[in-house]
Design a protein around this nucleic acid. Structure first.
Length: 801
RNA sequence: GCGGAUGUGGCGAAAUUGGCAGACGCGUUGGUCUUAGGAGCCAAUACGCAAGUGUGCAGGUUCAAGUCCUGUCAUCCGCACCA
């Protein structure tokens, strides 16, 4: 009989659908397992060969868990709002909903053809009003708890997409999606106060099992720093200039101040500024620069001194100049710094360029060459009350001092910024708020959710960069829910990070109309036991979804402070030429083709066999062939299966070892070595020329999570009980994984001289005794007297002479 | 600059607690079957004719190092004037 994947695969996919065997049961008494993969953005391109890698990995885990008796939730859905769909719809004069529907249908049929054990009855779609009703609902809770606010701020604006971008969407000064230049634009934007959760987001990481590199990236992104805010009084005004510093200990070394070009004091105190013209010119210059230019190109410091106002150093009452420079960012700290050129490299460069004084307050460096920034070894000098102290003690003392004098306070700061939540686009969730002249921003009544996206003729953003919805006056004009006077709807929509911030909760109870999910079911299914996704999502999506979940926890809607107990990441699949797969490079491999030529079981196996799961790996057509060859060989083993329903004596150890290795490797993302073990087993069967029924049965179960169709088929052909998918995972006996006889190595001075067979339970002492008896060993030491003999049971004897 | 990771055959890669480096697969070579073989099966395959040498490089610890320690180089990813 020939192995014919086409026939087998469609047959079993149909069968599984009919039997609904992968349906997660809402039987809350069974042991549960929630496996989650990132739901895809259904692009017009369809799947490429990178998508199935994480899906197959957790499909393997899910299938194995079911065989081990768990009630498994392994769902799939669509993160379908977003720009590419909208852009495509505009270009082709289609409705984005139509485009989305078509793309989803394509993705779904592709995923189905790979034979995943998703529970398709729980499919979610972020663009479905029944879904985004709850995205809007969560937003309203954030609003009601003061975590959403509108702010007129300088934002990143993509000149091509005509849309505001979050900092995170700007890569190297360019739009993450289209690559066009990003400029600054003032815009009134909805913001989410993720910064209020910064500490919780850091602290929560100690309770979860995430890859170390993921934790590190999150901590890095949040960027917590500890320091102090200090007030410097200004000449000619009663209001102080507040700065943030992580080095309050260097307060005596401050020789000038710098404020950001966007600092409000420039306008506020313009009457005091004698060279306002010059300052205005500098402001204009830096406003033209993108963030990228400010950071990357302008290595050379620039700036202008403010004439007419001086600052006073609160610890020594010295008058010092104030400069404006764009190396100080308005978006971090207070937008103003105290400059300590002796102990900060940037201040040092600036001081050198503009001939400002440099004072040493921490001894240990050479200030004629560079700033001395070491905080471990330095001793304070020229520093009044903290003279002679070590840096870390000086920090504490001076902070206490400024707090007691009421000129400052200890303060933590974060690199993490609040989340810009507005998009001036059509294809997103409408923000369910209404602006009333009398009442201000008023939330829509929750009973009126979902606030549907109205139909539009065109989706072009307005020329001023406003949302296309702003042109829909019928929709925009409404009445205030509070005072019933005429009012206007918010026309911005949500970013596509919104729907993905809570989708794992909707899978739990996807059809619930009373709540985003019932409390009972949440209590049963949460947290997600294992979440696998890309490394590219660990700062944005992962942080955003943890933030929303922590908020829902704080207001009592979910039962766990963290959504995911374990998070792993997969490596990318590269093209055959070792480059990132992309249309423009022409190296994209389409999974449909692979399935057509070799079958889904081969595709799945190769995706897992390709290499270390966490690393990127280049695609190889001949590697695919190798996996198909293995399945052919496995299929043919049926030709020499015998009737014995037990492990044959000579295969027993290998059988137990194989069960052990596959069982463990599937848990630790080492799918490649698990498959290698199954290949080695098959090679042994071919060597022997026969396989017993029991050996075959357990082999099929072990291979089933990787290649489910062919194993189900063989199961049936062999006449085993029922269906493979409802059977149980085999157990191994540790004592039977050890051979009776092992080959050990004889080393002389660490060099291998010979090998002998010994009984595997031989003691260290007996092995040492062998040195004087075994002929091969005697020959190896050539009659010399051993100085020392090291025997390691089951491994080696090393003789030192 | 900061943070994280990775360097092993021609290629993708394996290697409990330090204990036979290169499992498994690809590729290559040879054999076999065949009208044929880009199918199957069998065998060989780190390098070197050999003694021997080999896990980016240089040291160190150890009876023994891919694995531990010190230094160094290279590549990749993330962040980056964050005070």
């Amino acid at each position: 009989m020939e192995y014919n994947p086409k026939e087998i695969e469609s047959k079993w996919q149909k069968k599984w659908d009919e039997l609904k065997c992968f349906q997660a049961k809402d039987n809350l008494s069974l042991p549960k397992y929630y496996a989650l993969v990132e739901f895809p953005y259904p692009s017009g391109e369809g799947l490429h060969v990178g998508h199935p890698r994480p899906y197959t990995a957790l499909d393997i885990v899910s299938r194995k868990r079911r065989l081990q008796g768990y009630n498994v939730l392994f769902p799939m859905g669509w993160d379908a709002f977003g720009l590419p769909t909208e852009n495509y719809a505009m270009k082709n004069k289609m409705h984005p909903a139509e485009v989305t529907k078509r793309n989803i249908a394509r993705f779904k049929s592709q995923l189905k053809s790979i034979g995943y054990s998703f529970d398709w009855d729980r499919e979610v779609n972020t663009t479905d009003p029944k879904y985004y009703r709850w995205t809007q609902w969560i937003f309203l809770q954030l609003f009601k708890h003061g975590l959403a606010y509108k702010k007129n701020m300088s934002i990143n604006y993509c000149t091509s997409c005509k849309v505001g971008l979050a900092n995170e969407e700007v890569v190297d000064g360019r739009c993450e999606r289209c690559g066009a230049e990003v400029v600054k634009k003032m815009k009134n934007q909805w913001m989410l106060k993720i910064t209020e959760y910064a500490d919780k987001l850091i602290d929560g990481l100690s309770d979860v099992d995430y890859l170390e590199s993921i934790k590190a990236q999150q901590i890095n992104w949040i960027g917590k720093s500890t320091g102090a805010e200090v007030d410097f009084s200004l000449t000619g005004t009663d209001e102080p200039l507040t700065v943030y510093t992580t080095r309050p200990d260097t307060l005596y070394g401050v020789t000038y101040m710098v404020i950001s070009p966007e600092h409000p004091y420039i306008d506020k105190y313009k009457s005091l500024i004698m060279n306002l013209e010059q300052i205005r010119e500098y402001q204009l210059e830096s406003s033209k620069k993108s963030d990228f230019e400010r950071a990357e190109i302008a290595k050379e410091k620039t700036g202008v001194e403010i004439k007419g106002i001086k600052a006073i150093n609160p610890v020594n009452d010295k008058q010092i100049p104030i400069w404006v420079s764009d190396y100080v960012l308005m978006s971090y700290g207070t937008g103003a710094i105290m400059a300590v050129p002796g102990h900060d490299q940037r201040d040092y460069e600036f001081a050198k360029k503009f001939n400002l004084p440099i004072v040493e307050v921490v001894a240990g460096g050479d200030l004629s060459k560079e700033a001395f920034t070491d905080i471990e070894t330095g001793i304070m000098v020229n520093s009044g009350i903290i003279d002679g102290m070590e840096v870390k003690d000086a920090k504490i003392k001076i902070t206490e001092y400024i707090e007691s004098k009421k000129i400052g306070k200890a303060k933590d700061n974060y690199k993490l910024r609040d989340w810009v939540f507005s998009r001036q686009r059509y294809w997103g969730e409408p923000i369910p708020l209404i602006y009333c002249e009398t009442c201000g921003w008023v939330p829509l009544n929750e009973s009126e959710l979902p606030l549907l996206l109205p139909d539009l003729k065109t989706y072009e953003p307005a020329e001023d960069g406003e949302s296309p919805l702003s042109k829909m006056t019928d929709w925009v004009n409404t009445t205030c829910p509070k005072c019933h006077k005429p009012a206007k709807r918010e026309t911005d929509t949500m970013p596509n990070w919104a729907g993905s911030s809570w989708y794992f909760l909707r899978y739990i109870d996807p059809n619930n109309d009373e709540a985003f999910a019932s409390k009972d079911k949440i209590a049963y299914w949460m947290p997600v036991d294992w979440y696998n996704g890309g490394m590219e999502h660990v700062t944005l999506h992962l942080l955003y979804s943890r933030f929303w979940h922590k908020f829902l926890y704080d207001i009592g809607y979910v039962n766990t402070p963290e959504p995911y107990s374990k998070r792993t990441a997969h490596g990318m699949i590269l093209g055959e030429n070792n480059e990132k797969m992309s249309k423009s490079r022409g190296n994209v491999v389409n999974p449909d083709k692979v399935i057509d030529n070799y079958g889904a079981d081969t595709l799945r196996m190769y995706e897992m066999f390709i290499g270390d799961f966490e690393k990127s790996a280049p695609w190889s057509e001949s590697g695919v062939k190798g996996c198909r060859r293995f399945l052919d060989r496995a299929f043919k083993m049926m030709d020499f299966m015998t009737e014995e329903d037990y492990y044959s004596k000579d295969m027993e150890t290998l059988m137990h070892r194989t069960i052990k290795k596959v069982t463990n490797d599937f848990e630790t993302l080492k799918f490649n070595t698990a498959i290698a073990q199954l290949m080695a087993f098959t090679n042994a069967v071919y060597q022997k020329g026969s396989i017993t029924r029991k050996e075959m049965r357990d082999f099929l179960i072990l291979l089933n999570p990787v290649s489910p169709h062919v194993t189900e088929e063989m199961w049936t052909l062999c006449g085993f009980d029922g269906y493979l998918h409802s059977y149980k995972w085999p157990e191994y006996d540790e004592t039977k994984t050890i051979e009776d006889e092992v080959e050990i190595v004889i080393q002389v001075n660490g060099k291998i001289k010979t090998k002998i067979m010994i009984s595997s339970d031989m003691s260290k002492e007996d092995m040492e005794a062998l040195v004087y008896k075994d002929e091969a060993i005697l020959k190896a030491i050539e009659g010399k007297q051993p100085k020392k003999v090291i025997a390691v049971p089951k491994r080696l004897i090393n003789i030192v002479i």
